[in-house]
C-alpha cells in the first residue's frame, strides 16, 4: 500500500542501504501533517452515514430521471446500491486520509471502475455530482479545522477527477 513510509523504504531497499537522514526527514514531514489528516478521518467516520445520505440525496435531486423506468435507480434495490457505493467511496477517502496517500482509492476504488461502470451501464456523472456536493457542503470550522478540510477535499477531488 503506497504511503510516504512505504515509498521511502522501497527506495532504500532498492539501493540496499539503511534509511538515510533524507528518508527520516521525509517521514518526519509526513508525521507533521498527520494530525490534520487524522482529524479529517475521524470527523468523516463520525458523520459517515449522514454524509453518505446527503450525497445520495443530492445526486437524485439533480438527476431525478435516474429513478425512472429503465434507469440506474429504477427500483429501491438499485437506489440502495447507489447509496452503498457512495458510502464505499467515502470510506476509501477515510482510508486515504489515514494512510496519507491515494493508495486505498487507487487500489480499491479506481482500478477497474471505468470498465465496471461501462458494463453495468451506470452514469459516472451521478457519482461526480454526489461527491462534488459533499466537497462543497463541507466547511470549516463547522465540520473540521481548515487544514483537515483541505486534506479531505483534496482526496474527494482525486475521486471526482477519476470519475470525470
Amino acid at each position: 500500500m503506497k504511503s510516504v513510509v512505504t515509498t521511502v523504504v522501497t527506495a532504500a531497499d532498492a539501493a540496499g542501504r539503511f534509511p538515510s537522514q533524507n528518508d527520516l526527514e521525509a517521514v518526519q514531514g509526513n508525521i507533521q501533517r498527520a494530525a490534520a489528516r487524522l482529524e479529517a478521518a475521524e470527523k468523516l467516520a463520525n458523520g459517515w452515514e449522514k454524509v453518505t445520505r446527503e450525497a445520495g440525496d443530492a445526486c437524485f435531486k439533480k438527476y431525478p430521471y435516474l429513478k425512472q423506468q429503465g434507469e440506474a435507480g429504477s427500483t429501491q434495490t438499485k437506489v440502495d446500491k447507489c447509496y452503498r457505493d457512495l458510502g464505499h467511496y467515502l470510506r476509501l477517502v477515510n482510508y486515504c486520509l489515514v494512510v496519507g496517500g491515494t493508495g486505498p482509492l487507487d487500489e480499491w476504488g479506481i482500478a477497474g471502475a471505468r470498465e465496471v461502470y461501462r458494463t453495468l451501464n451506470l452514469p459516472t456523472s451521478a457519482y461526480v455530482e454526489a461527491l462534488t456536493y459533499t466537497r462543497d457542503r463541507a466547511c470549516s470550522p463547522r465540520d473540521m479545522s481548515p487544514q483537515a478540510l483541505n486534506e479531505f477535499k483534496s482526496y474527494l477531488d482525486y475521486a471526482i477527477n477519476s470519475l470525470s
Binding site: 500500500m1 504511503s3 513510509v5 512505504t6 523504504v9 522501497t10 482510508y95 489515514v98 494512510v99 496519507g100 493508495g103 486505498p104
Partner: peptide, 9 residues
C-alpha cells in the same frame, strides 16, 4: 508492504 497506517486500513 504495509506501515502502521495502512495496516489499520
Amino acid at each position: 508492504m504495509l506501515d502502521a497506517f495502512s495496516r489499520t486500513v
